[in-house]
Computed example of a mutant assay.
Amino acid sequence: MFQHGSTARRAGLVAALGLGLVLTAACGGEDGPSGSSSSKGRSGSWQVGDCGGPDPKQAPDGYRPLGCDEPGATFKALEVTSAGILPGSVQCPAGTDLMIRVSVSYGSSAENGSKGGGIPTHTVCGRNLSGDHPGDAGAGGGQLVKGDCVSSSAQEVACVSAGRDAFTVLGLVEEKGQCPAGTTEPMELTLSVGRPYDVICTAPV
């Protein structure tokens, strides 16, 4: 939801990743469909530089840790941060293509990889190993960042295909008065606990 006839932030893709236990994930937005995955037995905590890829046992939303040179590895961790209980409360760095919420489950679900809930432990901000980077500024995916484009209907869009009613994001701030020079359409968002900004500073594309 948004005010001033303008836009709300579109969250990045969220997926699931195994860490020796079952993990829960959602894709396509803050309230996307959920799934779960089991790991291939890797132990230890996620670190920057670790890689992972889809888990065929938990398709379509499951992921598992893999070596960066293993077949099936599709992304690398740019940052590892807190789980973020509330949607939108985690802000990954620019260039993040995947937001991976890691959750721990105990008991039978951890052994058979069945779908179920878990306790969120941390979030992995991942970047694709391929040349496809929807999280790059202007590419139309990932979290909203400076340099992205948004439509007048509150959706992030790829700048290359943006229409006449689209706007360029010049900044993400807490108050309108903090918007940078050149801002002509400060978009005030409705309150969302945990989101690091409340105003999208924009100008026509």
Rank of each mutant, 00 (worst) to 15 (best):
G32Y: 10
S34R: 03
G35S: 11
S36H: 09
G44A: 08
W46G: 15
W46C: 14
Q47L: 12
V48C: 02
G49L: 10
G52T: 09
G53V: 11
P54N: 07
P54Y: 09
D55E: 15
D55L: 03
D55S: 15
P56T: 01
Q58F: 04
P60L: 11
G62I: 00
Y63F: 13
Y63G: 15
R64S: 08
R64E: 12
R64D: 07
P65H: 05
L66G: 04
G67I: 02
G67L: 11
G67F: 07
D69P: 03
D69Q: 15
P71E: 09
G72F: 02
T74H: 00
F75T: 05
F75H: 13
L78H: 06
V80R: 05
V80I: 15
T81C: 11
T81V: 14
S82Q: 12
I85Y: 15
P87V: 00
S89M: 08
Q91D: 13
Q91H: 11
P93Y: 12
A94C: 03
D97L: 00
L98C: 00
M99D: 15
M99H: 13
S103G: 13
V104M: 13
V104P: 00
Y106M: 12
Y106L: 14
Y106P: 00
A110S: 14
N112T: 08
K115I: 14
K115C: 12
G118Y: 02
T121C: 11
T121K: 14
H122C: 10
G126P: 05
N128P: 04
S130V: 04
G131H: 04
P134T: 08
G135I: 01
A137E: 07
A139W: 04
A139C: 07
G140T: 05
G142K: 01
G142P: 01
Q143D: 15
L144R: 01
L144N: 02
V145M: 03
C149T: 13
C149R: 10
S151E: 06
S152G: 15
A154Q: 09
E156H: 04
E156Y: 00
A158N: 10
V160N: 13
S161K: 07
A162P: 04
A162L: 06
